[in-house]
Each structure stands twice: as structure tokens, then as C-alpha cells.
């Protein structure tokens, strides 16, 4: 208690100020109250049919390089259109007016961000301007739904006949898995054994007798239902007049694809049917399926 009065009073005051400053910091910078915009940037309006999981302050990228962030996301009154304001760094003010803003996902489960793919126009978008061409976020469910047929198990497996097919790789296919044609179950896998001579997998398929008109040049492929679902054998009918008979061997086969191949294949074949605003000149349908870093067919900067 022999302390000079002011030394601890100043210390206590500093402590209280620091404590409250920390509280204000927590409350404003790390909660949803926060709405900071960074120094010198200009805003650009975009309209999306679907923003997926895009959040405010998500990055805006060109060629994969961060150039700004999403400032605000609002729903246009009376329309099923999301207004997304982008705050873009003033250093990047040469964005062509016909550039396409697309919502991408970083990785399969990662965060979404806005990628801008350059157009060819000589005019550049100005402060408060609008990027008219956009491409909405792809919903994973839609994408998978397009790629894979509906699931379901074969019912009423009364009489069956068996055919064999050789695969170089069956993945995790096992006995009991479904055999499907056009997405409808028509039988099941009877056995999966390795061929000791040909050194590949010999799969015996038990197919319902009702489906005895399958052309004998049909191909069999091992597919996966969903991203991490069970594998099944899909039969794609050929054009031969002769039908498969009991004990026949299917010559045309396609082995199980690894998940990586599958996604790679999907990304290349991605559909462009559900775009709303895009579509004149810059072929955003094509560019949408590429990575944002890859060049577009027409628009190079």
C-alpha cells in the first residue's frame, strides 16, 4: 500500500481500456456484425440466378488470383435473382464489360467464390457498373443427378440367366451389387473372381429372364451411385440383332473409374443448360466447365 497512487491507477486504466478494446474487437471483427470494406476498391453489381453457398466477404478472383471480395448479397425484390455486389481492388480496373462472373467452388467441399472470366470488349466496367453476364452456382445434387441415374434395387428376380464380363478393374464391386440398364435394376452380380490366366476380374451377372432381348454387343461398365455410394454394373445396349444368351460373355467392358477420374470427366463434360443470363458471344457455357485459371476460347487478355 506504499505504492504511489498514480502508478496503479494508470495501469488499471490501461487494463480496463485494453479489455474493452478486446471486447469491441471480438464483437465487431469476428461476428456477423462486422462489415468492413477495404481501402481503395470499387463496387460492381452482378445478378445471379443462384448463389449456392456464397457468403459475404468471399473472395473475388481472376485467373485464380484474389482481386477483391463479395461486399453484399441481397435478394432482388420480387424476383428470384440474387444481387451480389463485388468490391474489387482499384488496381484491377480494366475488366471488360462483357466478362462473365461465375460462382466456383474451391475443391469439392470447399468454399465458394466469384471467378471473373475476361470477355473481349474494349469497354471496361466502371465504379457502380454491372457485369451482365453471370453463371450461377452449380448445385452438387443437380450435377450428380444429371450424371447418375436414379437408384433402386431389382425386384422379382424370378428366373435369371447368367452372362460373364471381364473387367480390368472392378473397384469395390462385390457379389450382390445391382446390374442396371438405363438406370433400372435388372439383375445382380453373382460373383466376382480374378481370372488366373487373363489376370483380370471375371464378373458373373445374373440378369432377370424378362430382359432377354439385350443385344450381344452391349457393353458393361462399373459405375458408382453417388460420390461415395455403392458400385454397380451398368449395361449399355448395343445394336446387334442377336440377344445375349445364358453363359455368353460380354466383350465390351468399361472398368470402374476412380473418383478422381469421375470428377475430372464430369468437369470436362459439365452441362451448360441452366444458365440464365449468359450466352452471347463469349461462350460462357464452355468456359464455365473449365477451371477459372484456364483461358477461354475467345477471351484472352
Amino acid at each position: 500500500m506504499s505504492q504511489p497512487r498514480n502508478s496503479y491507477a494508470v495501469g488499471t486504466g490501461l487494463f480496463i481500456v485494453l479489455g474493452f478494446a478486446a471486447l469491441v474487437y471480438l464483437a465487431t471483427q469476428t461476428t456477423s456484425v462486422a462489415n468492413v470494406h477495404q481501402g481503395s476498391s470499387y463496387t460492381v453489381d452482378t445478378h445471379f440466378a443462384n448463389i449456392g453457398q456464397l457468403k459475404e466477404r468471399a473472395p473475388v478472383k481472376i485467373a485464380g488470383v484474389r482481386i477483391g471480395q463479395v461486399q453484399s448479397i441481397t435478394l432482388q425484390p420480387g424476383a428470384e435473382v440474387a444481387d451480389v455486389k463485388l468490391a474489387i481492388d482499384k488496381n484491377y480496373d480494366k475488366i471488360p464489360l462483357d466478362s462473365v462472373a461465375t460462382i466456383f467452388t474451391s475443391g469439392l467441399l470447399g468454399d465458394q467464390y466469384v471467378g471473373i472470366v475476361y470477355g473481349t470488349s474494349k469497354k471496361t466496367v466502371a465504379e457502380g457498373g454491372t457485369l451482365a453476364l453471370t453463371k450461377p452456382a452449380e448445385q452438387l445434387e443437380d450435377m450428380l443427378g444429371k450424371f447418375f441415374g436414379a437408384g433402386g434395387m431389382a425386384d422379382n428376380l424370378g428366373g435369371t440367366y447368367t452372362v460373364t464380363a471381364d473387367f480390368t478393374n472392378v473397384g469395390t464391386l462385390s457379389a450382390g451389387a445391382a446390374v442396371k440398364m438405363a438406370g433400372v435394376p435388372i439383375g445382380s452380380v453373382q460373383s466376382v473372381v480374378a481370372d488366373p490366366v487373363k489376370l483380370d476380374a471375371k464378373v458373373t451377372l445374373a440378369i432377370d429372364n424378362r430382359y432377354n432381348q439385350i443385344p450381344d454387343d452391349s457393353s458393361a461398365a462399373v459405375f458408382t451411385s453417388g460420390l461415395i455410394g455403392a458400385q454397380f454394373v451398368a449395361i449399355q445396349p448395343g445394336g446387334s440383332p442377336d440377344a445375349l444368351k445364358n453363359g455368353d460373355e460380354m466383350v465390351l467392358t468399361q472398368s470402374a473409374m476412380q473418383l478422381e477420374d469421375l470428377i475430372g470427366k464430369f468437369l470436362v463434360n459439365g452441362s451448360s443448360s441452366d444458365q440464365k443470363n449468359a450466352g452471347n458471344g463469349t461462350s460462357p457455357g464452355k468456359s464455365s466447365s473449365d477451371k477459372p485459371s484456364s483461358p477461354t476460347p475467345t477471351g484472352k487478355q
Partner: peptide, 25 residues
């Protein structure tokens, strides 16, 4: 980790009432 993603994920989830008032204070 991206700076904006770091903060935007945080601000999207942290709630002033449940996390700061109820949790911290």
C-alpha cells in the same frame, strides 16, 4: 488460408449473443 475466407467463415458463424455474451462474458 485465404485472409477473406478466414474472416468471412468466422463472421458467418460466430454469433454476438450466443458466443460472445453467453460464451465469453
Amino acid at each position: 488460408i485465404d485472409n477473406g475466407t478466414f474472416w468471412s467463415n468466422m463472421t458467418a458463424v460466430v454469433d454476438l449473443h450466443t458466443d460472445i455474451v453467453n460464451g465469453v462474458l
